[in-house]
Design a protein around this nucleic acid. Structure first.
Lengths: 191, 191
DNA sequence: CGTGTCATGTAATCAGTTACATGATTCA
DNA sequence: TGAATCATGTAACTGATTACATGACACG
């Protein structure tokens, strides 16, 4: 029942597709799971050492001309086992903090336009995400729909799509609601 | 540009409605913003001391018979100013980690039923949330729709509703997709 | 000549949870 | 008698980001 460090599994997972260096892992994360998972070098490099010490990976150096050396890590059978074990375990759900909602919750302390502006900003962010996601989905549909891991990739993007579309709608409804409010209530003028 | 501790503002915000003790603040958080914000005593009590040292609150003790003493904190004008300033600043958006999606992303490593089970579990969680939210909305519509801060409360619940409904739909679509997959592909049997 | 990429790492710091410590009262 | 609630706090630990340090090459 020991507390498990999720970052370890993110690294293990990345190594499960192919042997990589710490630098590679960072890049791989950035162009695959970055929409819902990030790691910094400050986490990756120490974890990579731990994993090697625990026998979950083996490492070998690759010399390159004109470039720094690379330390490439390969998953061992024990490492893959560890990953599979974690994948089979139930997901731990934590309440995620939402700064936007916290600010809106105290909205009666400030002007209505302040809250509206927060929601507008958020809507722009969501709209940008929407475009990004639809682009990825289109790409995945065109290319490489045969690869089995592409299905799982599409599932994660679809999650983002559903969530983002719903939040855009919430933004629109909320902005309208707040605007109606600001028409009626003049008690707190701007600035 | 100093990094700002969000927990400070959560505490300040709670104190903005009425003077409270650390214990009260924990309770207040639990039955108002707990769906998107939590604080532990390990955060609250030290912050309360900091705020008093910085002149953002004043404190006085309340003696009670048969119960421990209470240290009740009241927002000062300076404290309210600090809160208002933070409320007016743009929201910082951080990428939130999603363990479910990380596990699904590596779904090709395990059996399809494992992934289906993860999504099913998540769906049950979302269904429970849905009930909770609709209950709160109904309550807010019946009672106290006059209070101005109730509007903002409803807005935060509405966010949860939109998000949760969308995710339930995603669950259904994803389960169906995975089931179709498991019908076709027998390459990775269960267990 | 400066910026960006490749590449690895450590140290300092901050944020946050959990466990521990204390102690009276009330209720089943 | 034991659990729950009221009430305040600290210490240990874990997790995570950021800044720092180094150094060469390529591209404009």
């Amino acid at each position: 029942m020991a507390k498990e460090n999720k970052s370890r599994y993110a690294v293990l997972g990345m190594l499960s597709t192919e042997p990589m260096s710490g630098y590679d892992i960072k890049k791989a994360i950035e162009n695959s799971v970055a929409n819902f998972w990030n790691e910094s070098y400050g986490q990756i490099y120490p974890i990579l050492k731990q994993l090697a010490d625990a026998g979950l990976t083996t490492s070998h150096t690759e010399k390159q001309e004109g470039k720094p050396e690379r330390y490439v890590y390969t998953l061992t059978d024990k490492g893959r086992e560890e990953l599979l074990h974690w994948l089979a375990e139930p997901v731990e759900h934590a309440v995620e903090r939402n700064e936007l909602l916290l600010k809106l919750f105290f909205g009666h302390e400030v002007s209505v336009t302040t809250s509206i502006e927060h929601v507008r900003q958020f809507r722009m962010l969501m709209a940008a995400l929407l475009q990004k996601y639809t682009g990825i989905i289109a790409y995945l549909n065109e290319h490489c729909m045969d690869a089995p891991d592409m299905l799982y990739r599409r599932i994660t993007v679809s999650y983002g799509l559903h969530r983002t579309q719903a939040l855009v709608q919430w933004c629109d409804e909320t902005i309208e609601l707040l605007q109606q409010m600001s028409g009626r209530d003049q008690s707190r003028p701007d600035k």
